[in-house]
């Protein structure tokens, strides 16, 4: 029998080392041994994902590596989640995220979602090619703190501006922090459309959201 500490490290290593098949067995062993699922998630899987993010920042890992790491994290989560004790979960900040209408490229958005989830945010993922009104409607419905929009295509950039205008028209712009990202997006564009923030990659997005919600 491995100790909890050993198993946590094994879970973390599975994520960092892209062991998306092995991770399920380790998670099962962890649960069978009776250790708390929340620790397994936070100190095991999420720890691994944070290490993977650090490797990404150091340009050791790139998109393929990060994707397989996240697959490993999700495979582990699938085993651990049903064993979570529901009590004690504090209110999380909510983020509505999606790729704006006209664009179906969602790798960047998915990575941002994963990183925000890893950092403890509650995510409402609208997917890709999302009608602009849906960002507004969903943010109102779930009382989101943040609206995050992504696009890879320069042709769909005006949609981001439109969403901000829609929030203004409804008089609810102040209720949300709006952040944008994606290959053609620059800080200059974010300023121009009066977004609250821009991040160049998924790891930075977490720092950005943390900072915006503190301020």
């Amino acid at each position: 029998m491995r100790s909890q500490e050993e198993l946590l490290k094994a879970l973390s290593d599975c994520v960092v080392d892209m062991e998306d098949e092995l991770v399920g067995e380790v998670a099962q062993e962890y649960v069978t041994a009776g250790y708390p699922a929340l620790d397994g998630i936070l100190k095991g899987l999420v720890d691994g994902m944070q290490k993977a993010a650090a490797l990404y920042e150091q340009e050791e890992y790139f998109i393929p590596e990060l994707l397989v790491c996240s697959e490993a994290m999700y495979n582990g989560l699938e085993v651990l989640r049903p064993h979570l004790e529901s009590a004690g979960s504090q209110e999380k900040h909510k983020v509505v995220i999606g790729v704006v209408e006209g664009d179906t490229h969602d790798i960047g958005k998915n990575l941002v979602r994963i990183m925000l989830e890893t950092a403890g945010y509650e995510i409402y993922d609208l997917g890709r090619d999302v009608p602009l009104q849906k960002f507004v409607d969903k943010a109102k419905e779930v009382q989101a703190d943040v609206i995050a929009m992504s696009t890879l295509m320069s042709t769909t950039m005006p949609g981001m501006k439109r969403v901000i205008e829609m929030l203004e028209e409804e008089g609810i712009r102040k209720n949300y922090k709006v952040i944008i990202g994606g290959a053609p997006i620059s800080p200059a564009f974010a300023n121009k459309i009066k977004a609250d923030g821009y991040s160049a990659n998924a790891v930075e997005a977490v720092t950005l959201v943390d900072r915006l919600l503190q301020g």
């Binding site: 320069s154 950039m157 053609p184 997006i185 620059s186 800080p187 200059a188 564009f189 121009k192």
Partner: peptide
């Protein structure tokens, strides 16, 4: 030259 931030938006 930045096609989105400068040539398109600027």
């Amino acid at each position: 030259v930045d096609p989105g931030g400068v040539v398109y938006c600027g």
